[in-house]
Design a binder for these strands. Structure first.
Lengths: 299, 299
DNA sequence: TAAAAATACTCCATAGGTATTTTAT
DNA sequence: ATAAAATACCTATGGAGTATTTTTA
């Protein structure tokens, strides 16, 4: 006479995601036996196994895979249900999980958190920084509410709200201050430093230089900060978004130059699940982010 | 730190549907205080009221209405999740909630239940008889698995599987045995007895007689059995589906005549929710129903 | 004043914790 | 031999029951 519980779905989803009872339990903030028992109970209710047990790793059965897919949809819908109440009322309160790409986060977040705090004192912004692909996954699985990324992302389930246009600038060793600014095609002849694989800004820079793929022997860095320091050491040149200039070039012996013909830029925007009941709230938030982004570091 | 439970959703759905704590509790097979507590807990978790309390009757708040709509979707999905396991394996087992329209049920169900029992010994058919509109509602809300109705029903969420074509025949007093068979247009001049409002067969009969609406002074009955008995008493004539002939005319002083030009008929079919994981099973069931229907009462 | 919801309390089922054993690599 | 899952046992939370009070139409 027992029936399915959300608890069971949550635990099973974690198991399907982590592939291990122990990790799943940790993820759910319970102990491994507790999770094992719930999975066992779930399987007994269904009358069929969801996972193939083995000591090292757990594999989902065919049924388990179908089950996991539907369970995820349900958990997402339940999450949205919980947000329904927050969408009404006059003040926006509670946790807001914001994802931001690494080439924007450090330059925007401090001022953004401030601005949000001023506008919505009861709001609890929970920022998270990672690459676009991960942010999109997290959004689709309801592990994030909104994400600030470079547009377009082209996911049908997501709404895209453009916030501001951001130009790229060239960073050269200080010794080249005032030298002639190279064209896009000249750039690819130079020793170009780029972010490592996975960062959208890497692809945007490559694209501006008319390079379909990264050239051999490309020097890579894991952050814009690293790239600029490498430029300062005379290793090469790089491109960075305008927003990063103030912070990153302050303590580096580099010079900054505007590019032109065409002037390179990207659109920063905010995305969220269309079905999220907080969508209207997010539109308000987007306005604040846009203002913050345009105001610049002095804002 | 608590989170939503399906129990809360089920109780709230019942409350939204019944509009009363007591009825909802009864519906959920618990006591009224237990349900009250869960609703209270739910509202406190959301931080906003879902219902406006009053002694006589409960009204949903705006939030409550949105919440109820989403909750229903979730509960439906959870129900389907529970059926996922039954879709695999080689034998189809467990409860199968079958809805059948009243002008088909008594003539088909006995043989159908037998046939199902032969084919799927572990299956537990739970038939329910009511008019098409109610059946469709129940299907959409996951209170039924399949329904046997006259096609088309034209609901995008439902799959329609045609089973067999069923002709209508004319039932006249026994005294008119062998008399000339009237045409469709003649029929509307005669004293026609029809089923009461809500039965699709009523509309099908009217449509065959080229009557857009029921004529004034129409005699109505609540079952085909009643109609035939009235014909036997010399009150008028009526149309019944072929399948009903054997059972209904056995103990009545009436004669049966085939109609023609055009020969009237309707398509009996089976419908189910497209998203139901048991859909493949239902296709098997449909084959059995079709065979049973075609075989006739001597089956 | 009568019907329905809320409150007060009691009990027990069960979810989850700790400790340990079993299993598979 | 080791890491992970299952098993055994215990505890405590909270869901549901009964009895009663409060509310309002």
């Amino acid at each position: 006479m027992k029936s399915l519980t959300l608890k069971q779905l949550r635990y099973f989803e974690a198991l399907a995601r982590t592939g291990q009872f122990g990790r799943a339990a940790e993820d759910c903030a319970i102990t491994q036996p507790a999770l094992s028992m719930q999975i066992k109970e779930l399987e007994s209710q269904l009358g069929a196994p969801l996972v193939e047990r083995s000591a090292r790793r757990v594999r989902l059965t065919t049924l388990g895979q179908q089950f996991a897919a539907r369970a995820r949809d349900i958990l997402r819908a339940v999450y949205e249900l919980g947000d329904l109440a927050r969408a009404d009322g006059d003040q926006f309160s509670g946790p807001l999980r914001i994802g931001v790409i690494p080439t924007v986060a450090p330059y925007l977040l401090p001022r953004l958190i401030q601005a949000l705090g001023r506008q919505f004192p009861a709001l609890d912004p929970q920022p998270r920084e990672t690459v676009t692909q991960r942010l999109i996954e997290d959004l689709l699985e309801s592990r994030l509410d909104i994400a600030i990324v470079a547009l377009p992302v082209s996911e049908p389930a997501l709404h895209e709200e453009p916030l501001f246009e951001e130009e790229f600038v060239l960073v050269r060793p200080a010794s080249e201050e005032g030298a002639m600014v190279p064209s896009a095609d000249h750039l690819k002849e130079m020793r170009l430093l780029l972010l490592e694989e996975g960062h959208c800004f890497r692809d945007q820079a490559l694209s501006f230089c008319n390079l379909p793929q990264a050239p051999r022997g490309l020097m890579e860095g894991s952050s814009l900060s690293t790239l600029v320091q490498m430029v300062g050491a005379g290793i090469g040149v790089t491109l960075i978004p305008e927003m990063a200039v103030e912070l990153e070039t302050r303590n580096a012996v580099v010079s900054v130059a505007r590019l032109s013909r065409p002037r390179p830029s990207r659109t920063i925007g905010m995305v969220w699940r269309r079905s999220n009941p907080l969508a209207n709230r997010f539109a308000q938030i987007a306005q604040i982010v846009s203002d913050t982004g345009r105001a610049g570091p002095r804002g």
